Computed example of a mutant assay.
Amino acid sequence: MSDTLSQTEGRPRRGSGRGGGGRRRRGGERSMVPEAEFTSYYGRPIVKASPWEADIPAYLFAGGLAAGSSLLAAGADLTGRPGLRRVGRLGALGALSFSMAALVHDLGRPSRFVNMLRVAKLTSPMSVGTWILSAYGPFAGAAAAAELVALLPPDARRGPLRLLELAGRPAGLVAAVFAPPVASYTAVLLSDTATPSWHEAYRELPFVFVGSAAAAASGLALVGAPTSETGPARRLAVGGALMELAMERRMEQSMGVTAEPLHAGRAGRLMRAARGLTLVGAAGAALSGRSRVLSALSGAALMAGSACIRFGVFEAGQASARDPKYTVVAQRQRMEREGPARHRPEDPDA
């Protein structure tokens, strides 16, 4: 009898779980079921990582650079800064061409991009983005072509070339209207996926990308435009950098556990480099005045920082998809914050 009692006392009680003792429910009642831990089959990822490669973050960066350059060029055109306008328009066309080349390379065939124009689906960020790019591109190209025509001798600017030159301002203004959507829709495209670190950043990521685009475009202007005309670019550089850094900080605070990949590995190194380069570039832009060397160095730092943040966000998303922790724990945090989803019964009379 005593042996039986000793064996019973030495046996762990049901529901004790790990670390002794189950969870206590509200009111002091002890739960008989230990708290579950996140897991997956053989430690394999729950969410499949995106098949995208380096072409996509390059596309994100170049698209933002193009959009910011068009916006800056339109302002320069309206305020009588021809040098700044020329750099903005030509920079927008060059960045857009590079962006489209990276996108088509990722798609594999140009026809796949054209096929996306067969439908317009407002609930699809990819479809909306395709139409935004298709509307923005021709006007940005026409504005850049007008700048090239203006470089020709006056006798050569006749007929159609003269009309193209006159169309430069209207085309540039229309391109500037499409610039903010071009700069921000890629953030919506990323956050609309199931990739944990991209999806949880959906609130702030568009603002991060817009600020980054403004900083990058200002950096290009500081490198290429006459220093006597770069006053608006310097101010936009500071404003864009502050917006990027502030919203990136807020984004990390709102992401919960899915912000961890932004601080680890290659993504962490890229994000730290982005913050450092952006701060240095913004400070240099504010203090450069008419110094050609300081303006160029500040502009290069701003563009490099913008590229780093796009690649950093991309790498963090890929890392979060490979680790099941960021899928399961993020879902739990969302349930604790918003409550479990409730099934709404269908109306039988509907």
Results as ranks from 00 to 15, higher is better:
Arg266Thr: 14
Val33Leu: 11
Ala102Asn: 13
Pro125Arg: 04
Gly75Trp: 12
Gly94Glu: 08
Ala264Ile: 03
Ala142Arg: 01
Pro138Ile: 09
Met1Ile: 04
Ala304Ile: 01
Pro153Val: 04
Leu96Val: 06
Ser191Asn: 12
Ala140Gly: 14
Ser298Ala: 15
Gly19Glu: 00
Ala95Gln: 09
Leu166Arg: 15
Ala142Lys: 00
Tyr136Asn: 06
Leu297Thr: 11
Thr130Gln: 02
Leu236Phe: 09
Ala102Gln: 15
Ala58Glu: 04
Leu117Asn: 01
Val188Cys: 01
Gly15Asp: 01
His199Thr: 10
Ser31Glu: 08
Ala286Ser: 14
Met116Glu: 13
Leu242Lys: 01
Ala76Met: 14
Ser228Cys: 01
Asp106His: 14
Leu189Lys: 10
Glu29Thr: 15
Leu164Arg: 03
Gly137Ala: 15
Met116Cys: 01
Ala282Arg: 02
Arg26Ile: 10
Met100Tyr: 11
Ala282Lys: 03
Ala237Gln: 04
Gly305Met: 09
Ala175Arg: 04
Gly22Asn: 01
Leu148Asp: 05
Thr186Asp: 07
Leu65Gly: 11
Pro348Ala: 07
Ala330Lys: 03
Thr130Met: 06
Pro196Phe: 08
Arg322Lys: 15
Ser99Asp: 08
Pro12Gly: 02
Ala307Trp: 15
Asp192Asn: 14
Ala300His: 02
Arg162Tyr: 04
Leu60Arg: 11
Ser111Arg: 06
Gly129Asn: 05
Ala264Asp: 08
Val210Leu: 15
Ala54Glu: 09
